Computed example of a mutant assay.
Amino acid sequence: MATKRTPDQLPNPKSSMWAFIAFYLRFRRNQAGLSGEAMGRIMKVGKSKVSRIEIGQERLDWQEAEMIDKEWDTGGLFGLLVWYASLGHDPQWFAQYLDLEVRAGVISAFEAQVVPGLLQTEDYARALLISGDANLADQLLRERIERQLIFNRVSPPHFTTILSQNALEWPIGSPEIMRAQLARLLECAELSNFVVRVVPRSWQTGACPGLDGSFVRMSGDDFGEVAYAESPEGGRLVSAPPDVRKFHVRYDRISAKALPEGPSRDLIRQVMEALSE
C-alpha cells in the first residue's frame, strides 16, 4: 500500500507555477474521486507517473494537459497552466532535458558558439568546464561524457547538428585540443546516423536566426517533440506544439544558410589546417 504523504511532503503551490500544477492536479483528482490508475487512463500514462507529477518529481506536459482538459471540460485550464509555467527559465529543466535526451530517437541541435556537448572530446569539454565553475568541473565532465553513451546503443539516435563557423574557430584549450575536436566532428560526419553542417561566417550569409542563440529539438516515441533553448544559469524546455513549431521554422531558416555536408567538411578541414600553421 502506498504511503500517504503529509502536506509538508507535497509541493507548495505558492513556490512556483509547476508546484501549483502538481497541487491542483492532485486536488481535482481527489475531488473527482479518482484513483491514480484512473487518472493515468485519462492522461494515457501509468499511475506511477501520475504520482510523480503530483509530488513534483516530474512535470505535466502539454499533451497530458490537453487530455485532462478534454476529459474534464476545463476550457483549456491545464494547458494554459503548462504554457505559463513553460515561459520561465528554470535550472531544473536540464534534469528533465537529460531524461528526454536518453529516450530521444531524433536530435537536432544548433550551436552558435561551441561544439555540441554530445560531440565534445574529453579535453575540449574539460577546457570549457574549467572556464566556468572549476570546483564542479570533474563532476560535470563525467556527466557530459556519460551522455555520449547514447550513441553506443544498438539503435542510437539520429543526430543532426548545425554549427556556426564561430564554434569551429573559437580557441578552446590549445591548438592540439581544437584539432582533436575538429577531427572528432569529421569522424562523426562520416557516420550514417550523424549529419554535420556549418553556417559560414561571410557577407553572403549575413545575419541569420542562429545569432539569437543555441537550441536543441528532440523527438521520441513516448514523449512526442520538444525543444530546449539554452540560457545562462538555466534554460527553457518547450513542449507546447505551437511553440515547438517555432523552433522548427527557426531551424529550417538556419539550415537554409548552412553549407551542404561536403562543403561543411571541407570548411572544418580548412580550420584544422590553419591551426597547424
Rank of each mutant, 00 (worst) to 15 (best):
A32G: 07
L87M: 03
A207L: 13
E37I: 00
Q181I: 09
A274D: 05
K44P: 00
A189S: 15
Q57M: 11
R29H: 12
L81Q: 01
P156T: 15
I177T: 14
N135M: 13
L141W: 11
V195E: 13
I254Y: 10
D73R: 08
W18K: 03
R217M: 07
R217A: 02
L168V: 00
R142V: 15
S108R: 15
F23L: 12
S231I: 04
D99S: 14
K49F: 03
L182I: 04
S51G: 13
A127T: 08
Q92W: 00
T121Q: 13
S164F: 06
W170M: 05
D90G: 00
A240Q: 01
L25I: 10
E146I: 00
A274K: 11
A274C: 03
P232G: 10
I42M: 05
V115E: 07
P260E: 08
L77I: 13
V198C: 11
W62Q: 06
F223D: 10
F194G: 07
E54T: 00
V106H: 12
D123L: 07
V82T: 02
R201N: 02
L191N: 10
Y124H: 14
E230V: 06
E58D: 11
Q113P: 02
R197K: 12
Q120E: 09
I68C: 09
E230A: 13
E66Y: 02
M17G: 03
V106T: 14
Y84M: 02
L140R: 15
R236M: 00
L182S: 03
Y251Q: 14
K14L: 12
N135E: 14
L136Y: 12
S16C: 06
A109D: 06
K49P: 05
R41L: 09
R153I: 09
E176R: 12
P241S: 00
I130L: 12
N12T: 14
K44Q: 10
G75K: 03
F23Y: 14
A85Q: 04
V102A: 15
R52F: 08
R269D: 09
S214L: 11
A137Q: 13
T160Y: 07
L81Y: 01
I254L: 11
L168K: 01
A227S: 13
A109S: 09
R153L: 07
G210A: 09
R142D: 15
A32C: 08
G56Y: 06
V154E: 15
H248E: 15
P13N: 13
S174Y: 04
I68S: 07
F151Q: 02
R147N: 02
L163E: 01
A167V: 09
A227C: 04
E261W: 01
Q204K: 13
M272H: 07
L87K: 02
A95L: 03
P171Q: 05
R29D: 10
